[in-house]
């Protein structure tokens, strides 16, 4: 078992024939992901990486039965691509593209939600169910199969955490890179219950960062709803207070989104919080051998 995606998940790629799309789609195919086709407007009818190319997502979905889309289109066109996927009945869009305007993502996510489509990202490494299905740009071989679920805002820290978990003799069920943009799709709060419900996941690792209050919300959720052990690391404990202009940010968030605040909230929720990023693997071992 796993969450959201597995070896049977049918995936299409939006921005399939571009440089990034091509490179990463072929890596996903090598990993074993069921990439069933792709979309590049104007190239419909062609074949790419041995898969059919379609002009529209609707056509791709109708022909292939895909339920997930991996999005690589350039930032200016991301919102359009996400909304097209939602309109076509895609269930989950994994948005890899970095640099999408916030206003665009705001509209795109509203529309996705209205259409019942979940999103991951943008500006994220994607999602991987170890040894089954990789939808994104992460190095697949770092994720050995196991019993730890992983949720992370940061790309390379996702790899770091998985690597440490594997070195301690454990492995990963599913790892989700949720991205750190101001507007993101699925977050800790939506993913935690999925891991809680997944019989194979026995512990959850949560990697956060300074800024925003998603980790604080997660802490409140964990306290009430999560019975499995959770290990957390928050990056940016030593980040200097940014030079700012204006006061609005501090007013709206109530708190200032510091690492210390987040670590305290998580600890109070019973989470095993590590101070050093090198201790993630050890902490997992500790909570799993209790």
């Amino acid at each position: 078992m796993s969450i959201l995606v597995n070896k049977d998940t049918k995936v299409i790629v939006q921005g399939f024939t571009g440089k990034e799309g091509t490179f990463h789609a072929s890596q996903c195919i090598d990993y074993g992901t069921k990439i069933v086709g792709g979309v590049t407007p104007g190239k419909g009818g062609q074949e790419h990486l041995g898969r059919p190319v379609f002009n529209t997502v609707a056509e791709a979905v109708e022909t292939t039965g895909a339920t997930v889309s991996m999005i690589f289109v350039p930032p200016a066109f991301v919102a359009d691509a996400v909304m097209e996927a939602a309109e076509a009945g895609i269930e989950l869009a994994v948005i890899i593209t970095e640099g999408a305007p916030v206003r665009d993502m705001m509209y795109a996510k509203m529309y996705a939600t209205k259409k019942g489509m979940s999103t991951i990202g943008p500006n994220c490494p994607g999602i991987i169910t170890a040894e089954e299905c990789k939808i994104g740009i992460m190095p697949g071989m770092i994720f050995k199969k196991g019993n730890v679920g992983l949720i992370s805002k940061s790309g390379t820290l996702t790899y770091e955490a998985s690597h440490q978990v594997v070195q301690e003799g454990f492995g990963i069920t599913t790892a989700v890179g949720i991205g750190g943009d101001p507007i993101i799709g699925l977050s800790y709060k939506q993913l935690l219950p999925m891991f809680e419900a997944d019989p194979e996941t026995e512990a959850i690792v949560m990697i956060g960062e300074i800024g925003g209050d998603l980790e604080i919300q997660a802490a409140a959720y964990i306290k009430e709803n999560i019975s499995k052990p959770v290990v957390a690391f928050i990056a940016g404990q030593t980040a200097p207070k940014g030079k700012r202009m204006g006061h609005a940010g501090a007013i709206i968030s109530g708190g200032s989104g510091t690492a210390a605040e987040k670590m305290a909230a998580l600890e109070a929720a019973g989470v095993k919080v590590v101070v050093s990023p090198a201790e993630i693997g050890k902490a997992v071992k500790e909570v799993l051998s209790k």
Binding site: T156, G180, G236, A239, P277
Partner: peptide, 12 residues
């Protein structure tokens, strides 16, 4: 490489 790992490196 990577902003998250860069922050974590400062932390460690």
């Amino acid at each position: 490489n990577g902003a998250g790992l860069a922050m974590a490196t400062m932390d460690i």
